[in-house]
Design a protein around this nucleic acid. Structure first.
Lengths: 229, 229
DNA sequence: GTGTGTTCTTGTCATAGCGACAAGAACCTG
DNA sequence: CAGGTTCTTGTCGCTATGACAAGAACACAC
């Protein structure tokens, strides 16, 4: 019994996953998602949190959600091992420190992983793929989007999350209208963000409201207000 | 490592779950969901299918979907056991036969389980509860609804699924319009169903179309067209 | 300062979706 | 045939939303 953890975060408007370079056999030197063996005295959630901290120094405690179990014979060359996979979405990974069993830890664009530019150990490619798919769905149904951004955020930042995860372009005006629709999804803070290097009108800063508990305001299914060109 | 299976089906317009009465310790004589130990040479999916067939005689092969793993210490009094839970929605359970390890097998209304009128062994109440919640979500996003009904079905039957699972009343006219919306969710067969004992106009029979793959037509979140009185 | 470019914000318009409701159609039983 | 039940069709009005245009607030170059 092992647990493995997929940590997702936004960086440079792209989705990234936290990987560690394996320090031990099997697959020594190859990239993998953090994880390790569960102890009999702890719950699965506790095991996930502990392994993540041990190998990367990241504490994603309350955000870890379980999303799958993998137990194909042969997925681990050593023995028959079933792993339970966890997912956490964070706005800032914080200090990444390679710990036990890990020679190195860093953020990698998920695009590079899915394109196989970065090869993963075990069946971790499949696990990461399932995690992404899960986030795509959760984005529509839950408030996961706010977990990607900070305490205070601009609507452009929030929109970038949807665009990166779904791989679409959204109309800024319509996005604003849907989110601000006075149902309490976002609450203006009164402050404004610093404009980017190219200038532009400074964006208002918002914080997350409580309406996300009932599902998000942005949908992708029958909606097609992606930008044309 | 064990696998446990939650089988859900509709009976008398109510949601039912397939339970077995345990033939062995621990919890001998108590109701539980079917399940058992995974073998090293098989996948989790195969283990679920095998255990279900062994204990109940039910073959739900292609419909089994994994939805959670449970590994709290103490959930099994004998030892530390992690179980992977599977869910299947079927229109007809078929022949139920109590098999190995099971003294009895039958369908129980989920209401009785959630109300604790029927007590379950281990943490199976929690597992069943999670399964129900999963179905409630899937009903909105996937074509699970069609798995509850037969090959050919009336729109009233399909509507009853949503009403039973969500615990709401839906307007028959609006339900029809949403489902028939010529997007291929249901396809008329040209045949008609037998009216019930109280008479009434005979309903048209439909079969499931391919549009369900892109998500269902019925939503519950911002929608509130439940019947008033 | 002034002009140009960029980004965020506000507003308009037309259409599609949908909740509420009423009426008609097709069966039953007695 | 009368009355009851269930399924089916249709209408009305409101809201949500996709498309698009215009205004506002900044940076930078000159």
């Amino acid at each position: 019994m092992t647990v493995d953890i997929v940590i997702l975060t936004m960086s440079e408007s792209r989705l990234h996953v936290l990987l560690v370079r394996r320090g031990e056999e099997p697959f020594q030197g190859m990239w993998a998602i953090p994880g390790g063996f569960k102890r009999p005295v702890e719950t699965l959630d506790e095991a996930a949190r502990r392994e993540l901290a041990e190998e990367t120094g990241v504490d994603a405690a309350s955000l870890l959600t379980q999303f799958g179990a993998y137990g194909d014979p042969g997925r681990d060359p050593r023995m028959s091992v079933v792993t339970v996979a966890y997912l956490a979405v964070v706005r800032d990974v914080g200090e990444i420190v390679a710990g036990t069993d890990a020679a190195e830890a860093s953020l990698v664009p998920v695009g590079d992983v899915l394109d196989r530019k970065v090869e993963l150990a075990f069946d971790h490619l499949r696990i990461v793929g399932d995690a992404i798919e899960r986030v795509r769905v959760e984005l529509e149904v839950t408030g996961v989007a706010t977990a990607f951004v900070g305490e205070a955020f601009t609507l452009a930042e929030l929109r970038a999350v949807y665009e990166a995860v779904w791989g679409v372009q959204l109309d800024a005006a319509n996005f604003r209208r849907s989110v601000v629709a006075d149902d309490g999804w976002v609450i203006p803070t009164g402050r404004r963000a610093q404009p980017g290097p190219a200038g532009g009108r400074p964006a208002e800063l918002y914080r997350a409201g409580r309406a996300w508990e009932r599902g998000g305001p942005i949908h992708r299914l029958p909606r097609t207000w992606e930008v044309k060109s």
